[in-house]
Design a protein around this nucleic acid. Structure first.
Lengths: 235, 235, 235, 235
DNA sequence: GATGAATGAGTATTCATTCAT
DNA sequence: GATGAATGAATACTCATTCAT
C-alpha cells in the first residue's frame, strides 16, 4: 500500500526484518479480529515466533500498536497527498475523507488504535505531523474556493474521521457501511454555501491539544519505558 | 442475620430492592469516575454490600452495566419527552440533542456502556423502545415544519449522540466541551433549508438493526471463558 | 513461641484466620528452605490455598515477608524482655545476643528478611520500636555496671546480630554453628574492662537511619502499593 | 569476518584474550553499580561485544562472576602482600583489613560475589589458596609479637571481611562508611593484650571448609532449570 | 570466531465468579 | 439472604541461554 516500506532506523538483519514484518502483519490480523485486547502471546503465535521475539522488536504492547499506527498513518498521509491530485478542491477533500474512512472502516485494530491508543512519544506526534500539511492544504484549497465553511480547522478533519470510525466500530457486525450515511451528513455540514445555523461554539482543538489527547488516552499510561526515574508519592 | 424471623416475601423484596438501588447508585458513581474497567469489588464497596450481594442481584458485570444503561435510557427518554414541551420544533430537537449529549459527556460509564456494552436481552431493546416514540415525535414534528431534512430517520438521532459521545470520550481530559463544536456541525447538517449535497447514501439502521448492534458488541461477546485444561508433567 | 498471637487489626472469620496462619506457616517453611526468591505460587501450594488467597491477605510478596518479620520481631522482643530477668547485666546482654542469634541462625527466611527485606511502612518501624526499649535497657544496664564499653549504642546490637546472621547464612551448609565463634569475638569487643584500641571511628546509626536502611533495601522498592500518585520523570 | 585468513592460534587467542578482558572490565563496572542482578546483555553492551561472545568466554553468568571474584582475590592477595611491608605487625594486619574492607565496601558486585556467588570449581579454591599464605603470614607475625590473640585462625580473617562487607551492603545507601565502626570493634576483639572472656567456642573453618562454603552457595545451586513439560488440552 | 536474534519458561499480580459460613 | 473468602486462569513482561547468520 505505502510502497517504500519505512525501515526501522537501524537496518536489521534480513531474517530479523522478516520477523519484524511477520509480527506487524500478525498484529494487524489479530488486532483487527480481536481488537487491542488481544494478547501479545497471541500475536506471537500468529507470527510463528516466540513472545520474546515480539518484545525484542517492540518494548511493549503499546509500542507494537504504535508501530502499526505509524505504518497506517503513512498510508493515510499518502491518501491525503493522492487526493490533492483531484482537480476540484471539494472533490479532493471528499475523496480523502471517503477513502480514509474506508480504510478505518475495514480495520478494527487501526480503529481502536485511533480511538484508544497513543503514545507519549514522538512517533505519533511525527505521524500526525506527516499528515497535517496535506490535510491543511486540502482544506485551505476548498475554503479558498468557497466550497467549505471558513470556520472549519484542519484538526477537525481527523476528528470527523474519528467520529466515522466510531460509527463503523459500533455497527461493524450489522451494517458495516452505514458510516457512509453519516459521512454524507457531515459533508453537508462542511459546505459553506449555506449560512451556518450559528458560529461553531467551541474553538477547534489546536495541534498541541491533539497531541495531548493522544497522550491522555489509555494505552499511553505506559510507565516510563526505559529507566526513567520514578518518584512515588504516598496518598 | 434475622434468620429465624421469616418476613413476608414482599418485605424482603423491598429490602432487596433497596440493595439493588444502592448497587446501581454505586455502579453509577464508580463507572462514571473510572469507566467500565472498575472492579465489581469496588462497586460493592461503594455500595456498602458484599460482592456476593451484587451477584445475587445481577448475574454478572455486564448485566449490571445493562441495568444502568437501562436506567439512563429512562432519563434520556424523559429528556426527550420534556423537550417536546418546547414550542418550536427545531428548538425542541436541539434541546434534546444538547441535553442528552451533555449527559453523555459527563458520565464516562454511560458513554462506555453506550459504546461497548450491551447484552443480548430484552432490557436494552425495551429501553430503546421506550425512547423511540419521543424521538420520533421530536423528529417528525421538526420535519413537518420543514426545519429538518426529510431523509433523516429516528435511529439517526441516537447514532449522532453516539458520535458526540465518542468525541467527548476522546477529548475528555483535554477539552471536555469540544463535542459542542461537532454538535453544531451536525445541527447544520440536519437543517433542511439547504439542498443536501446528495441524498444520504445508506439507509438508516432500522430499529431491529439497532438491537442487533447492541447484541453484537464486546461485553456480550463473552464466550464461555476459555477454561483450558492444563496438565503438567514433570520431567 | 510468642504466645499471644498478634491478630490482624480487624478480626477475620475463623476460617480466614486459619488460612492466614497456614499461609504464614507455609511462607516460613518455604522462605526458610529456599530463601526469599521462592515464588508466592510455591507458598500458596505449600499452604494448600490458591495464590489469590495469599494476595487477599497480603498485598504483595514483600508484605508477606514483612508480616513474617513482624511476627518474628515479636519473638525477638520477647527474648529481649526475658533476658532482662537475668540478674547479671552482662549475662543478660549475652543471653539476648546468643538466643536471638540462635533464632536467626536457624531460620533462613528470617535471616534474608533481616538482610534484604524491609518495608517503607510503619510495620517494620513499629517492630523495631517494639524491640528498642528492651535492647536499650539491656545495654544501659550493662554499661552502668561498667561491663560494656560506653561508646556502644543500642543500634549497634541489631547490626551485630546482622553480622552474625550473615555468617550463619554464609556457612549454613558447612558449619551451621560457626557463628558462635564470631559472637565470642564480638563479646570480647564489647567488654569495657580493657582500654579500647581507639575510639570507635564512626558514629552509630541513629534509629532514624536504621529505618532508612530498611527503606533503602531491595524488597522495599515496592511501587506505590495502593493508589499512590506516581510521578514519572523522564531521564 | 576475516574468515579466509587463518591466523595462527596464538594470535587469535590474543584477540580473544582482549575480549575476555573487556568483558571482565565491563562486568566489574556493571556488577559494581547494579549488583549481580544486572543482565548479561547489559554486561555485553558495556563491553561492546555481543552476548554470544560473553558465552563463548564464560560458560554461564556464574562463571563470569567467578572469574571476577578470582581477579579480585588477586588484588586482595596483592594487598596482603603489600601489607607485609609494614614494619609493625599489628599495623600490617590492620592495614590489610582496612584496605580490603574498603575495597569490598566500594564494590557492590564483589560484595555480592563474596556473599552469594561461587562455583564449585577450582578457580575459586585456587584463588583462596593464593591469598592464604599472605594472610597467614600477617596473622602469625602479629600473634608472634603478642599483639593478636593466639586462638585466631587465618580463615577468620576472610570471614571478618565478610561480616564487614555485609554491613557495608546493608547500610550502603544511608551510611556507606559505617562498617569502619565495626572494624574498630573487631580490632579490639582481635587484640591479645586482654584476657579473652572465654576461649572461642567453635573451631575456625578449615581451608577445606572454606571451599565447601563457596560450593554450597546460591549461584552454584543452579539445578537443571525446572523444564516441566506442559500439555494443554482445549475443552 | 563474533554477533545478536530467538526462545519460552518463569514471575508477580489482577479480577470475575463461586461457595462456605 | 448476605457476606466476603477463595479460586485460578490470564496477562504483560524478563532474561539466561542457544543457535542461525
Amino acid at each position: 500500500m505505502n510502497g517504500s516500506q519505512q525501515p526501522p532506523a537501524r537496518l536489521l538483519r534480513k531474517d530479523a526484518e522478516r520477523n519484524r514484518q511477520r509480527i506487524l502483519a500478525a498484529a494487524a490480523d489479530v488486532f483487527t479480529e480481536q481488537g487491542l485486547d488481544a494478547t501479545l502471546d497471541d500475536v506471537a503465535r500468529h507470527a510463528g515466533v516466540g513472545v520474546g521475539t515480539v518484545y525484542r522488536r517492540f518494548p511493549d504492547k503499546a509500542s507494537l500498536a504504535d508501530a502499526l499506527f505509524d505504518e497506517r498513518i503513512d498510508a493515510l498521509a499518502a491518501m491525503a497527498e493522492r487526493a490533492q491530485a483531484e482537480p476540484d478542491a471539494w472533490a479532493a477533500l471528499v475523496s480523502f475523507l471517503e477513502h480514509s474512512a474506508e480504510m478505518l472502516a475495514s480495520d478494527r485494530g487501526l480503529r481502536q488504535i485511533l480511538m484508544f491508543a497513543a503514545q507519549g512519544h514522538d512517533r505519533v506526534a511525527c505521524a500526525r505531523d506527516r499528515m497535517r500539511p496535506a490535510i491543511e492544504s486540502l482544506l485551505k484549497r476548498a475554503q479558498a474556493d468557497g466550497q467549505v465553511r471558513a470556520d472549519l480547522a484542519a484538526t477537525d478533519i481527523p476528528i470527523i474521521e474519528f467520529m466515522l470510525a466510531a460509527v463503523a466500530e459500533y455497527a461493524r457486525q450489522v451494517r458495516p457501511a452505514v458510516w457512509r450515511r453519516y459521512l454524507a451528513l457531515m459533508l453537508d455540514a462542511l459546505r459553506a454555501a449555506h449560512p451556518p445555523g450559528s458560529p461553531l461554539p467551541e474553538p477547534e482543538l489546536s495541534p498541541d491539544e491533539m497531541v495531548q489527547v493522544l497522550n491522555s488516552n489509555p494505552l499511553s499510561r505506559r510507565q516510563a519505558p526505559h529507566k526513567a526515574a520514578t518518584i512515588t508519592v504516598r496518598p
